[in-house]
Structures are given as C-alpha cells and as structure tokens.
Design a protein around this nucleic acid. Structure first.
Length: 445
RNA sequence: GUGAAUGUAGCUCAGUCGGUUAGAGCGCCAGACUGUGGCUCUGGAGGCCGCGGGUUCGAGACCCGUCAUUCACCCCA
C-alpha cells in the first residue's frame, strides 16, 4: 500500500491511454470546427454563486455535489461541476452578445462533482460540450443534436438512440406544473422521501426518480409534451421533422426532464444501446445512467432560453449539450473501436463553405448537403436564424467562407445548387451531387 | 505580499468650471437591394458612468471606502 493514493473518484491516465485521449480530442476539435464552432476555455473554478444561481438550490448539484472552498482572500469558489454556466458567464463578460449571432462555442475539460463513484462516474471527469447562443429556431436544436450524433458516428458508434422530449416554456409550464401537482396531491404519501421533497420544491424533477413505486405512479401522470402551448408544440414538431429528414432515429421520452427553470422546450439524451432495442420505453424501467448495464447515457442537452437572462444579460436563446468523455472512451473500448482521430491528415484544410438557404424545405436540404461537405473535410456552416439571403451572405463573408452555396425553391425544383466563389464572384449552377467536385475544381485554381 | 495608476456602450475613447435629455468611431442588428457578400448610405438596439457611502440645490466629474483591472517590485509554474 503506497503512502498516498489518488483521491477517490479521480483517475491517473497513463501513457498508453493518453494516446487514445489525444486521438479522441483531435477528433472532437476537428469535428466541432467543421460545424463552425470556436473553442472556448474558461476557468476551472468560478464564484460559487454562479452555479447555485444557474443550477438552482434544489438541484442535486448544488445540494450535495459541489466542491466549494474559500480562497485566502475569503472568496467563495467552486470547482466547476458543469460547463454551461461558465460559458454563459464568459459570453456576457466578453461582450459576445455584440458579436455576430449566433455565437457557437465548444469546450473540453475537467468537471468536478462530489458523487458516489461507480462505473462511468467520477468525481473528476472530462466533459466535451457545445453551446449555441442567439438562435431561437428549431434548426439550432437540430444542429446541436446532429453535432453530437455525428461525433459518435465519426468515432464508429452506430447503436445509438436519441431520447427526445419537450418541457415547455414559461408560457405553458405553470399550467402543466399545476396539473402535475394536482395529480400527485392525493398520492404524496406513496412517494419516496426524496420525491416528497421534490414535490414541494420542484415537481418536474419527480421524473428523475429511480424508485420503482414512484415510477409506477409517474406512468399515469400528465406529461409535459402533451401540455405544450402552440409555440412550443410547433417548435417540438419542427425539431422532430428536422431530425427525421436527416435520417436520425429518435424516441419520444416523455419522462425526460430538466428540472431547472432556465431550461425550456427541447431536452434530449443520446444513449448507447448495444442491444439495439430502440429504447422507446416511455417512462418505463429506470435508466442506467452510468452504464454498467446495457444502456449508457453518453450525452445530454437541451434548450436553455432563460439562462443568459438569469445571469443578468438580455433575454437570449441558447441550446447545447454536454458529453462525458470517459464514458465515450469506455464505450468505444467496449466496441473494440479506436477514436479515429484526425491525426492531421484529413484536417479541415478543404476550406469554409457557407450553405445559404431560402425556405424551410431548403433549410433541411442545406443541412444534408453540409453534412456531406463536412465528411469531405470542409467546414460547412448553415444559417440557424432563418435570415434573409442577404444576411446569410454577410454572415458567410464574416465567417471567412470561400464559397457560398445557395439553395432555394428554384434549385430544389431543378435538383441543383448554386455555387458562388466569394473571391472571384463567379457563380455556377451544378447538379446537387456534383457540388463536391465543383468545390474541388475551385480549390485547385 | 508591497507600491502606483486606471475603471463611462461589446471594443477604443470623448465628456469643458460640478449644471438640464451622457456622446463619437468601430462592432452588432435591420433596411436601401422583396434571391446575392465586401463598398456606400440610412435607421435601430445597446449605459445600475465598477459598487457603496459622503459633500452639494445639483455628482460621470469632488471626498472616503470597497471591488476589479493594468503596470512595477517580490515570488513563481
């Protein structure tokens, strides 16, 4: 027995493993860049209040999981338990609301939670995450989910299920909450102790309980997705429509919630499902979060339209996800996969392409085209705000795009894409499946 | 830890002797151009004047405190 051991819930990564880490990190960096996300690095500790404010005093994080300490100057600080709050703080503090919108960021780094360690759960773990600020459109939700899903796909994982739900917004949630409360009012006694607390403090979090009796009661409870206002309903429908037309399988999971006030509308998880059951078990068996068993939650995210305002900024829509890198690595290992890191060979040297679209049908087509371009090594950026073509051109110009691809009703009807070389101003119309070749020709010259 | 300087819009800065509604340039958003970027023009959003107290009829300005930042020193990866 050595004199010292690493602290409970932490890990040493030895040379053989760090090589795998590096390859996965390279994949993540290249992948994020290919969607037009920029890397942000924020401090590993922040003022404690930032987390109590954003996660909420009733959350598990604040109640029992934060590593909080006082520094020598008497400041109350906390090792970051998650990434979004710090990124939101940085977004405001660095004047990013005045940068071209939307602002798309990614981060990778250690997070700290005082929790019972178990398979796939540590006190220090590494999280990769992305955040999109300033885009209210369902397209942004779709892109965020796509970024996560495509990363797994690029790493070689296939048996994935996207669990999807909508938890409404400040307009429809109060009425839903009231419905939920009245459903449980007479049954409080049947709930476990934790749930009795939840019932009082934040009834939405009842859905997080793993206790069998509670889950049985939840089966008959009113579900948020059935109680959305018209705006939330149409938002949710458009997210699903987008995922569907990109060929991403998803399963409605009415029991999926985020109990924090600043979350709104879309919430999702991506679950590794080796049995390939499809996982439509709405409100059914308890989920095995950490992944000792069959299911493994690799990634969780959602929309948080209230966060920036909570931090003192102007009302600003936001959406993002966080992903546990240790879990991903472990999953890849279990599948006998190696993260096929970019290794600098394919790189992203092919150039930046902005895919401009006019109309909802074109938006989806643009997403599909952008996906093909990224796989060929391009950085491909799509509009997430439903802006005018003119604005999209400006955005593309500022993003440093070499090419502008234009898809509208005319192009869709003719099965073509307009390709404009922004340097020369030359524009040609080419069949949709020849776009890559056309860009290749342009790159030669 | 020691000393000094500085805090006005996202950024760089004006703001007269203490006086009425705090400005400019850049950036951002939008329009001119209803499907086309850079250039130009027009419009718009954006401010707890770091925070707290004091002096004064009146404070962005003066005084005190506090917090933050920057620089130098000390130390250090």
């Amino acid at each position: 027995m050595p004199a010292y051991q690493r602290p409970r819930g932490t890990q040493d990564v030895l040379p053989e493993a760090t090589a795998k880490w590096r390859r996965l990190e390279a994949l993540i960096a290249g992948h994020s860049a290919s969607f037009g996300y920029g890397e942000i690095r924020t401090p590993i500790f922040e003022e404690s209040d930032l987390y109590t404010r954003t996660s909420g005093v009733s959350s598990d994080i604040v109640r029992k999981e934060m590593y909080t300490f006082k520094d020598r100057g008497g400041r109350l600080l906390t090792l970051r338990p998650e990434g979004t709050a710090g990124v939101g703080r940085a977004y405001l503090e660095n004047g990013l609301p005045s940068a071209p919108q939307p602002v798309k960021l990614w981060y990778l780094g250690p997070m700290f939670r005082y929790d019972r360690p178990q398979a796939g759960r540590f006190r220090q773990h590494t999280q990769y995450g992305i955040e999109v600020f300033g885009a209210a459109s369902p397209l942004a939700d779709v892109e965020v989910i796509l970024v996560a899903h495509e990363l797994f796909a690029a790493a070689g994982l296939t048996r994935l299920v996207i669990r999807l739900n909508s938890i409404g917004c400040p307009a429809c949630r109060p009425a839903y909450r009231a419905k939920l409360v009245s459903y449980f009012e007479g049954r409080v006694g049947d709930l476990c102790e934790d749930c009795q607390d939840r019932f009082r403090e934040n009834p939405l979090r009842l859905f997080d309980c793993k206790n069998e009796r509670c889950r049985a009661l939840l089966l008959g409870a009113p579900m948020s997705a059935d109680n959305l206002c018209p705006e939330c309903r149409s938002h949710f429908a458009r997210v699903k429509e987008g995922l569907g037309s990109l060929g991403l399988r998803y399963a409605d999971d009415p029991g999926l919630v985020r109990g924090l006030d600043y979350y709104s509308r879309t919430v999702f998880e991506i679950v590794y499902d080796p049995a390939g059951t499809g996982g439509n078990e709405a409100g059914g068996a308890a989920k095995d979060e950490a992944g000792g068993g069959s299911h493994r939650v690799l990634c969780g995210g959602g929309r948080y339209d209230g966060l920036v305002e909570e931090l003192g900024g102007a009302p600003t829509p936001g959406v993002g996800f966080g992903l546990g890198v240790e879990r991903l690595l472990a999953t890849l290992e279990a599948e006998g996969l190696e993260a096929a890191g970019e290794g600098g060979t394919t790189g992203l040297s092919a150039g930046v392409v902005y895919v401009a679209t006019v109309g909802p049908a074109a938006e989806i087509a643009g997403f599909g085209l952008a996906r093909r371009l990224r796989r060929a090594g391009f950085v491909a950026i799509c509009d997430l705000l439903g802006r005018s073509l003119r604005s999209q051109f400006k955005a593309g110009d500022r993003a440093g795009a070499r090419w502008m691809l234009i898809i509208g009703d005319e192009e869709l009807a003719a099965g073509v894409v307009a390709v404009r070389d922004l340097a020369s101003g030359k524009q040609t119309s080419v069949p949709a499946d020849e776009v890559l070749a056309e860009l290749g020709r342009g790159a030669q010259s």
